[in-house]
Design a protein around this nucleic acid. Structure first.
Lengths: 224, 224
DNA sequence: TTAGGTCTACATCGATTGATTGAGGAGAGT
DNA sequence: ACTCTCCTCAATCAATCGATGTAGACCTAA
């Protein structure tokens, strides 16, 4: 359960596995929560602005703007957010530029897990000393943000008849290619109920079958 | 519930996050199971010998013996085990050595998750695309591929067993949520033939049904 | 010429899905 | 209290899909 004590983190790295790895390691920590991922510098800025994390783990070398530029933008817009640079090699010239751009520190990608976690917590403890007004804003966002809720909100902003929260959850699983029976077991409901939800989803999206529903959902960015 | 149907996988990479990332992604798959990790070439051989996996994901650049040497050792000792090389950059000279050493294929570390999973499943089913005997053909195809059909070309460049032109056409229609009967009438073929094509598409993409095929295709950018 | 890949086609059978209808309970707002 | 929405469940029936095996025509590369 996400609480206001969680360290909200955004990951920015162009290598999916690095992101997944970090996300995995961080998400199982009780005091950390990965709230967003980005695969380019520009995307990192977007994601950071929309999620207002406590900390951004930023790869330096990325397509679409280096981590340096992104760091600068983020620091300017979100003074309460710490940026930690990720580097592959020990000596990377950009690290210094990054620090000058406002980064709080840097970590090597082959850092052992425990060390990384310790670093993040230390960084965050230091950060809280400076936070005041922005921390409150961040908290407000935390309390009102939740993956499902965001999708739900996204659906409500579109032109289609809004999906209910439950329907959005079903749609999520549908978009993974899950079968009715699998969806049912994940959500702990009967298959009949799942069918009902899917029926409603298809009606609302104006499509005929599950495949079209998934396609429509992906195009509308209701999922993924 | 691990069964004999699970694809047993060993990860060998010196970067902990890459390992964690892969483990995370693979372990949540119902048909895959990471049975061991190694952070060096030598360790990779040890772990492989003691766990006898179906597949080893092997980084090429590692301390303690390159992935090439380790690949050779593993292939010799365990002919039933396939080795897939991991590389950071698209053109890496060692890839060719690796293929010669008996590796079944290679993938880039920034490969999209869906594509990786599809590749692993295809490889496990015995996909021959990157087997040493046909690797040359495949590479030649990639280097000389200049098909009019961009999507077809994209498929050929990816890790997965390439779709034929016709299959790509069918996949296109599939991605519009078309039914078999509709696809058949558009392409002027019988519904039976459409089913055959779809069957092959699903096999190659390593998925179970049409919905997953469409999702995978969209994520791999084979369509739209 | 032979071998292999591709595209086509068909049949059978079980699994999955979708349409339809009906209905009860929980919670929010009137 | 009443209404409305959402979530839940059930039962039936038709449509669609997916697995599997077989096979002929065509083309290309060896």
């Amino acid at each position: 359960m996400p609480t206001e004590k969680m360290i909200r983190i955004v990951l920015a790295d162009d290598q999916p596995f690095i992101r997944k790895g970090l996300r995995y390691v961080l998400d199982i920590q009780e005091d950390m929560q990965v709230v967003g991922e980005a695969s380019s510098g520009e995307e990192a800025v977007d994601v950071a602005l929309s999620h207002v994390p406590n900390l951004v783990l930023m790869d330096i070398r990325m397509p679409g703007g280096t981590g340096i530029t992104a760091t600068k933008s983020i620091i300017e817009a979100l003074p309460g957010t710490k940026v930690v640079l990720l580097t592959t090699f020990d000596v990377e010239q950009y690290v210094f530029e990054g620090i000058r751009a406002g980064a709080s520190g840097y970590l090597l990608k082959d850092t052992e897990t425990e060390e990384l976690l310790a670093g993040i917590r230390a960084m965050h403890r230091g950060a809280t000393l400076f936070n005041s007004s922005t921390a409150k804003q961040a908290l407000d966002q935390i309390l009102t943000s939740n993956t499902t809720d965001q999708l739900h909100a996204a659906a409500q902003q579109s032109l289609i008849e809004p999906l209910t929260k439950r329907e959005t959850e079903v749609l999520q699983l549908l978009a993974y290619g899950k079968r009715n029976q699998e969806i049912s077991s994940v959500l702990c409901i009967s298959e009949a109920t799942t069918k009902t939800h899917i029926h409603h989803i298809m009606q609302k999206l104006g499509v005929r079958d599950r495949t079209q529903a998934v396609v429509a959902a992906m195009r509308m960015k209701l999922v993924k």
